[in-house]
Design a protein around this nucleic acid. Structure first.
Lengths: 210, 210
DNA sequence: TTAAATATACCTATTAATTGGTATTTTGGT
DNA sequence: ACCAAAATACCAATTAATAGGTATATTTAA
């Protein structure tokens, strides 16, 4: 007899969770045993239930999908992590897969594709939505892969930029020299191959950094 | 005997549509008769079915939720429009309600709230998620309402800013004087009460302008 | 047919952002 | 303990953005 696998789903939109709940209602193999609206609730669920699969929205707050993904693969290596993303231009596929995710599925995929991704993941494989495979290292875009491992500090500064703060204000806020902040901003733009702050905020917004 | 009401749901994410479909599966009064992934498919559905309720994601593309809302209330005044939004900081509640929407619901609402919104709408009332009521003119924020009816030209310039274009580049692209572009940018920031381009792109991204 | 809104254009001054460097200290991992 | 990565700091030059004006032609809606 096949064991029913327990799933925790995490997304900050209840309506979406309700939808997933119903999608899985009649599934013979999988059962949603817990819902979470943020990163902390995901971790909480793991202390309460024996969870086999975590389905995470990357846009989820406190901590974000990326952080949770790293924590889960470290603390619960048996658990499969399925990442859900809104964007088909997502630049983070590589980072997520490296950080231990076993599947990366776009939200504009249907439930069949989601089930398929889970099946593949449970068999030990990895699944990436077709539309996203262009962004993995296996098939570099434009001949090279934009590698952009933003550091913690850099992401911190991006968040403050999104709050309309100037370099000087950021410096004050973080108790840094304005020179340092400008150095970080310079490095960020170079890393991401962007031209200015407008493009940076667009990128950050698209990739759920802010 | 009560007539079952026909609903068209529109969102660019199939997974979300699948979820809504199931949410409504066992509802006695409402039935999802059509799904749409963009604005054009919504209009198409109206030519095929007698639709009573349209549930629209504001982030939907071609044309966006706002445009569709205006078209529907003009061409199908009997139809109730329920707007779904991702953001609890949304600044467009007023504009949507003025353009004919009968309810404005956050995606982090549960299905009960969604059903409730539809009920209220069908009885001729309007429904706005509690979290958003701060942003309507009935309860002004900080003593005044930010009215920001961006013009066509202004939105055009915002889109180009999001593509990392400078004022000069935008001027060239639109065959305008750089002075004109800067005037528009100045007016945009003032209208929206923003400090700089970073904030503008954040706003535009959050409000599905880009 | 007017008034209001929109789009256009210009000017000046100030502030901020960006680009090009270099260099030292701190932290994290093997 | 060591190496690499990250974070820190500084300088100078240039370019772009922002804020404060004013002003006029063109559209659009009442």
């Amino acid at each position: 007899m096949k064991k029913i696998l327990n799933i925790v789903v995490a997304d900050d939109h209840q309506l979406f969770l309700d939808g997933l709940q119903l999608i899985f209602t009649n599934h013979p193999d999988y059962k949603i045993i817990a819902q979470a609206h943020n990163g902390n609730e995901v971790l909480e669920a793991f202390t309460k239930y024996p969870i086999d699969i975590a389905i995470l929205d990357i846009n989820m707050p406190k901590p974000n999908g990326f952080e949770i993904c790293k924590i889960l693969t470290k603390d619960y290596p048996e658990c499969k992590v399925i990442v859900l993303s809104m964007y088909n231009e997502d630049q983070f596929v590589d980072e997520f897969m490296k950080s231990g995710a076993t599947a990366y599925v776009l939200k504009n995929a249907g439930k069949t594709e989601l089930f398929n991704a889970i099946d593949v993941a449970m068999k030990g494989g990895t699944y990436i939505s077709k539309e996203l495979q262009h962004y993995t290292s296996s098939e570099p875009k434009d001949g090279f892969v934009k590698t952009h491992t933003l550091t913690k500090r850099e992401i911190e500064i991006i968040k403050l930029l999104a709050l309309e703060k100037s370099s000087n204000e950021i410096a004050q806020h973080l108790f840094l020299s304005p020179f340092t902040v400008n150095t970080h901003r310079k490095n960020i733009l170079q890393k991401l191959g962007l031209k200015n702050s407008a493009g940076l905020i667009k990128f950050a917004s698209d990739n759920a950094l802010i």
